[in-house]
Computed example of a mutant assay.
Amino acid sequence: MTVWRGQLPLILASQSRSRQMLLANAAIDFEAVPAEIDERAVQQESGLTSPSDIAALLAREKARIVSIDKPGQFVVGADQTLSLGTKLFSKPAGRVQAAEQLSALAGRTHQLHSAVAVAREGKILFEAVSVAEMTMRQLIQSQIEVYLDEAGETVTSSVGAYQLERLGVHLFERIEGDHFTILGLPLLPLFEFLRSERLLAI
């Protein structure tokens, strides 16, 4: 079953399992082709400091780079940044850094900035950024250690050391924002664009 009406499959420029799951669950015919870019280098060279602007830049670059090698195909790029006040977070390098991130986020509200872009043959056709407000529970160190024990290596695969669709749900007190933004691929604005291009049957 697919609602995709493009002559060629959609390309997702990401190796993220959650992003791939979102498209698959929405019955979109797609191929995953991860973008080979140095995200931190692109960010530093841009001089951007706004979390939303950084996420948008990286989403555009991922889509653009992959689309150059996929003539005629629509390519979706996505990126997500986490900010706590003026501080930006990256994926933790290991357990120690994951514990540090969780300690910093505990009892406070942070923002997830999720960007999506669509490119074709090197040209950006569409982009959007959505923001979710995430309030983490107060956590004592022993709770953080239990979480890290149970979550294992997955804590290094997501900024903030959590995956809300898995064990990370236990860390939160309140969430304001749509499900797709939190998982790193704002589907609603993306699908609105794809429908405008007559690429979806629904």
Rank of each mutant, 00 (worst) to 15 (best):
V3S: 11
P9M: 01
Q15P: 09
Q15M: 09
S16V: 13
L23G: 02
N25S: 14
A32H: 11
I37T: 12
E39A: 13
Q44I: 07
G47P: 15
I54T: 12
I54A: 12
L58T: 03
K62H: 01
I65F: 15
G72W: 12
V75R: 11
V75W: 05
G77Y: 11
T81D: 02
L82R: 00
L82Q: 00
S83C: 13
F89V: 04
K91D: 02
P92Y: 02
R95V: 12
A98D: 02
A99W: 08
R108C: 00
T109A: 01
T109E: 04
T109P: 12
H110M: 07
L112P: 08
L112M: 03
H113D: 08
V118S: 06
A119S: 02
E121M: 11
G122Y: 15
G122A: 07
K123F: 06
V129L: 05
V131H: 04
A132Y: 05
T135W: 02
Q138S: 00
I144E: 03
I144G: 05
E145G: 03
L148I: 09
E153C: 11
S157W: 10
E173K: 00
R174Q: 03
R174T: 03
I175C: 06
F180W: 09
F180N: 06
L188I: 10
L188R: 08
E192A: 10
E192K: 14
